[in-house]
């Protein structure tokens, strides 16, 4: 599938720097490291739960760099008033996971 990722390169840089600041181990952040960051958005927990469901693509309870970018993208869009989708639209799936 040849669709550009909706996470723009400049946004990815920003998300990557947040990711790195959280102290990933082996390129992966555990749920307990990501959770406070998402809670910090002040979005309702049920929304954040859905954001997690959509971004933890391999369902391992942890987020790698690309999964984290999906989570942050959804949080920022939600803060702008856009609804969080029930399932991940293809343009939001990181190219590395297709």
């Amino acid at each position: 599938v040849d669709i550009p990722w909706v996470v723009k390169p400049e946004e990815k840089l920003k998300f990557d720097s947040i990711f790195d600041s959280l102290g990933p181990v082996g390129g992966i952040l555990t749920g307990d490291k990501v959770k406070p960051v998402l809670l910090n958005s002040k979005l309702p927990v049920d929304i954040l739960g859905r954001v997690w469901e959509l971004s933890d693509l391999d369902r391992d309870g942890m987020l790698d760099r690309d999964e984290f970018s999906v989570a942050m993208y959804l949080v920022y869009r939600a803060l702008e008033g856009e609804p969080v989708p029930m399932s991940l639209p293809p343009p939001l799936v990181p190219p590395s996971k297709r």
Binding site: L48, G49, W52, D56, R59, D60, G61
Partner: peptide
Amino acid sequence: QYPAGGSSTNPFL
């Protein structure tokens, strides 16, 4: 830490 499968991989549930 988390059981395989199931929604307990979600720290918000």
